[in-house]
Amino acid sequence: MVSNASPASRPKTAAKTASPGRPKDLGKRAAILEAAKRLFSNEGFNGASMDQIAAEAGVSKLTVYSHFGDKEALFSAAVRAKCEEMLPDDLFAQELKGPLRAQLKVIANAFFALVSSDEAISTQRMMMALGQADDPLRKLFWEAGPQRTHDAFAAFLQSRVEAGELQIPDVSRAAEQFFSLIKGEMHGRMICGLCAKPSRGDVATHIEATVDMFLRAYAVR
């Protein structure tokens, strides 16, 4: 069960960081992030302790604090790492190959795979279960995951507007619409535990229809 304890009420010793100048061990950092992704997903933010994460990563708790400063910073980094793993920044690069429709399908498939993954479903349920005192944690999650993805896709859309391929008066709103359409009812039902992950064929049909709808709204006429 997720606790309603506020991040502000947690021990401030976690906020200490190592002195600058000494290079960090990138292998240990990667191990900590992998452990954090698993434990935050399985146990929730309050259920996963820094001791557990350190033990899972095979490092000392001091090493965890040295790399990430505090639990909130580690959570934010873990969310960002999971998003970058499944929806890398270069996915939105202008070098995406093929016609615009094909590029949008690639992005849509990667996004749906991310939001429908077991880790993402668990994390979103955790966010919904938090109390009002944990609002700062929700903000950390939003900025590390959904906001990053939104901003990158909005920049992608803007580049296509400037190239004359799309006609969009508000690219930020269009980015919101695209991702909301891609999630669709399937994602909401998964969050509520009403259905299992859809088949590959169902996802493909859903994404084809959604990308076509988006292009009907914003393709240059």
Rank of each mutant, 00 (worst) to 15 (best):
T63P: 02
I107N: 00
A31H: 03
D134F: 03
A5Y: 10
Q158H: 08
A133M: 05
A154N: 07
L74C: 05
E143Y: 09
V106G: 04
K71T: 04
E72D: 14
N42C: 12
S6G: 05
V161Q: 04
F214I: 06
R22I: 12
L74Y: 07
A196M: 08
D135R: 14
R148G: 07
T210H: 01
A93R: 06
A155D: 11
H206S: 09
Q147L: 10
C192W: 10
E165Y: 00
A8L: 14
E119Y: 05
A36L: 04
K183H: 06
S180N: 13
W142D: 12
R125E: 02
S19G: 12
S117E: 01
A113M: 04
K37D: 11
F156I: 07
A93W: 03
K139E: 13
A14L: 09
A108K: 02
D51Q: 14
R173I: 13
I182C: 07
K105T: 10
M186T: 12
F153N: 02
D90H: 11
A217K: 13
A113K: 02
P146E: 03
S41T: 09
A48P: 05
D51N: 14
F214P: 09
Q94C: 02
A77Q: 08
L62G: 15
E84K: 08
Q158P: 00
L194P: 00
G201I: 11
A196G: 15
A31N: 11
E176K: 13
V211Y: 01
F92E: 04
A129E: 14
A35I: 04
Y218E: 04
K61N: 07
G21P: 09
K16H: 15
G184D: 02
S116R: 00
I191Q: 03
S122I: 01
A14I: 06
A31S: 13
P99D: 10
K37S: 08
E176Q: 14
V59E: 01
A217H: 11
E84S: 14
P7E: 02
K105E: 15
R101W: 03
R189D: 13
E165K: 09
E208A: 12
